[in-house]
Amino acid sequence: MIQIQNVSKWYGSFQVLTDCTTAIQKGEVVVVCGPSGSGKSTLIKTVNALEPIDNGDILVDGTSVVHPKTDLPKLRSKVGMVFQHFELFPHLTVTENLTLAQIKVLQRNQEEAKNRGLKILERVGLSAHKDKFPSQLSGGQQQRVAIARALSMDPIVMLFDEPTSALDPEMVGEVLDVMVQLANEGMTMICVTHEMGFAKRVSDRVIFMDQGRIVEDCQKDVFFGDSDSRTPRAQDFLRKILQH
């Protein structure tokens, strides 16, 4: 469903991504991990062209994100994205956050959009908060609304960019629960995260990045189970992150 082909990117003279190639199948849950500055957030943002790339190509459902004729807003409307800092729209209510793009992009009418939004809000367990503003919600609740906002567009794939990194520890669980539920329903997901518990439980594959390169790209069981065959860099990362 998503092909990432020989993608490279520079910030000035600094190369953030070097020749990254991988593919994500429909229904697959892929966790991207690696030390900070390894380019994992940049890589995931290239999938919906929030970060332009300098070399290579990315196909989403057969459409190239770099082709000049590609209708990027349309492509992005099919790709759900969840940010580290939620990025809910603070001047809109929860319901308005969920319906805005449905109405403006998918041309759904007010009624349809609201029904769809409220149904998804119920799925993330926040129906009671539909008329509140984001600032009246906890971090965990805000992130669940952000997931609901992305889902209300009926995306074909969901991108998660460190969705739990900005949360207080006691709120990580509620967000991960929603993600697990999504994965179990068969949603195609790419998750940049340090939550190795989540990776072990629901992911199909793990991609490990270091210094802008994809160093490991293997099945979950291989990544966590057969540690001797991992690169030293990945072993070192796993040791550090699993210690706690």
């Binding site: 992005r76 409307s77 994205m81 940010f83 990025e87 793009a101 906002r149």
Partner: peptide
């Protein structure tokens, strides 16, 4: 970015 990401 959030606006772009939902297709606006």
């Amino acid at each position: 970015y959030a606006g772009y990401a939902i297709g606006l």
